[in-house]
């Protein structure tokens, strides 16, 4: 019919062809790429993953190192630097909570969530994209610290497979931290509040641990906290897998010190199993009406 072109204006040649399929992997990757670009463009927000761990390695290795003796390696002057690395890895991985929490909190406050939610993207891909980007982000401090460690005299002295296992454990623990980060951001919702929690909760927790000193040197209740602290456990597990000093524990030490790898895995799984559903629920509530 010749009148059609008038009755139905120019829309025919641009009739939208809706892709009715759900493509969760594709959507997640697009959101993850966005997250990675964000990180590249605000290097100041990467300080906790770049500058800070390197600074900590150097500070502790050279400033405090000489004053701290490692049980079982009292005569080795380089022992503390090797001992230190497992601790700083553990501390930095724990700070992994904040990368994802800050990114999500920013999105809660700049309208990005509404934009994403009005798009036909697969359910959960925003969350998955953020998590993936932050899992990739976690590789930055791991690589930087490993290099700094090599410079100050640290080395993975375990078998090849133990070394692989150590790095795999780091990623698994990072994944658990990301879920805590999602939960935290969904509960407090603003970047300022996320940072507040950083200093009140997680920062001290990384010190009341075997990160920088052997737990045997801590007094009373702090010692008990440190012995059961999962961050200690990560540090100890990494020392064990890297075959670094500091893994010698007294026979009467509590179970986690004797089984740091198992204890770390239990914590990792527990955190994911408990936090993930809570985080997803809190997240959905916070983006909902």
């Amino acid at each position: 019919m010749s009148a059609t072109s008038i009755a139905e204006p120019a829309t025919t040649d641009m009739e939208p062809s809706h892709d009715e399929r759900s493509r969760p992997v594709h959507d997640t990757w697009v959101i993850a790429k966005r997250g990675l670009k964000h990180m590249r463009r605000q290097p100041e927000a990467l300080a906790d993953a770049t500058f800070q761990p390197i600074m900590f390695v150097l500070l502790f290795a050279y400033v405090f190192g000489g004053a701290i003796a490692i049980p079982g390696a009292e005569d080795d002057p380089g022992a503390y630097r090797e001992f230190l690395m497992g601790g700083i890895f553990a501390q930095t991985l724990s700070f992994g909570v904040f990368g994802v929490a800050m990114a999500l909190a920013a999105d809660f406050n700049n309208g990005a969530m509404d934009r994403f939610r009005s798009l036909p993207i697969a359910r959960g891909s925003v969350l998955a994209g953020h998590s993936l980007a932050n899992l990739i982000r976690a590789a930055i401090p791991i690589v930087l610290m490993s290099l700094t460690g090599l410079i100050v005299g640290w080395q993975p002295r375990g078998s090849f497979f133990d070394t692989i296992a150590a790095y795999a454990l780091m990623l698994a623990f990072t994944f658990a931290m990301i879920w805590i980060g999602v939960l935290l951001a969904s509960l407090v919702r603003t970047p300022e509040a996320v940072q507040g929690v950083a200093f009140v909760a997680i920062f001290p927790l990384t010190f009341v641990a075997s990160t920088f000193v052997p737990t045997s040197t801590l007094p009373g209740i702090l010692k008990t906290i440190a012995e059961w602290n999962p961050i200690s456990s990560v540090a100890n597990a990494l020392r064990e897998l890297f075959n670094n000093p500091g893994t010698v524990v007294p026979a009467d030490a509590p179970w986690p010190l004797h089984h740091s790898i198992a204890y770390t895995l239990i914590w990792t799984v527990l955190i994911i199993v408990i936090t993930a559903p809570l985080a997803i629920r809190a997240y959905q509530r916070s983006i909902g009406d």
């Binding site: 892709d19 399929r21 493509r23 697009v30 966005r34 934009r115 798009l119």
Partner: peptide, 8 residues
């Protein structure tokens, strides 16, 4: 570009 990709 990102929104185009998210719209498949």
């Amino acid at each position: 570009q990102m929104l185009g990709e998210l719209h498949h």
